[in-house]
């Protein structure tokens, strides 16, 4: 039996509309899963033991090799790390598993690396405008004036 958790240091994971996207924030490589894979991943990331998950999905017809390969790939890609048993119960929607023919899929993509790594941070904080948080800068008025004069120069 093994337990896992998301490798939060490197990976950002988002599940919307039942589909997981995992982005490696260091490499810009990202991963997509099918809906059944997303469910199994979600259980794994929540610390549900592999034993509990397997007991459930083997009854549906998933092949053991597929399950093992799915987990091995996530470990190899460093999406998951070893974790502790959360005690949570397995939660799999059989209808979704059936739609995917009980097959777990994890695919790797590298077609947005440059864009993801460019880290465009020009987001806006409502009261601050699209500029840095002033609180993070030196507020000494003389110093600010000196530095702004330097910029004008």
């Amino acid at each position: 039996m093994a337990n896992y958790q998301l490798n939060e240091t490197k990976m950002f994971a988002d599940i919307t509309d039942g589909i997981a996207i995992v982005i490696n924030s260091e490499t810009g490589i990202y991963y997509g899963m099918n809906a059944f894979g997303t469910q199994v991943y979600e259980n794994l990331a929540q610390g549900v033991s592999t034993e509990k998950i397997w007991e459930k999905i083997k009854t549906l017809g998933t092949e053991e090799d597929n399950f093992k390969a799915f987990i091995d790939a996530m470990l190899e890609k460093e999406i998951l790390l070893s974790g502790t048993d959360s005690g949570a119960e397995v939660n799999i929607d059989e209808a979704i598993a059936k739609e995917d023919n009980y097959i777990l899929e994890l695919k790797e993509y590298n077609d947005a690396q440059e864009l993801l790594l460019a880290d465009p941070i020009h987001e806006v904080k409502e009261e601050e405008g699209w500029s840095p948080e002033k609180s993070s800068l030196n507020e000494d008025k003389e110093d600010v004036a000196r530095r702004e004069a330097k910029m004008e120069g």
Binding site: T16, I21, G32, A112, S136
Partner: peptide, 26 residues
């Protein structure tokens, strides 16, 4: 580059946006 504070504060929001775009792309 002004400061790292801003980017870090909003990093998860940004990645959520990226994930939405990538999901639509797939």
């Amino acid at each position: 580059i002004h400061s790292t504070n801003f980017g870090k504060t909003h990093q998860n929001t940004e990645f959520k946006n990226y994930a939405a775009i990538l999901r639509a792309k797939l």
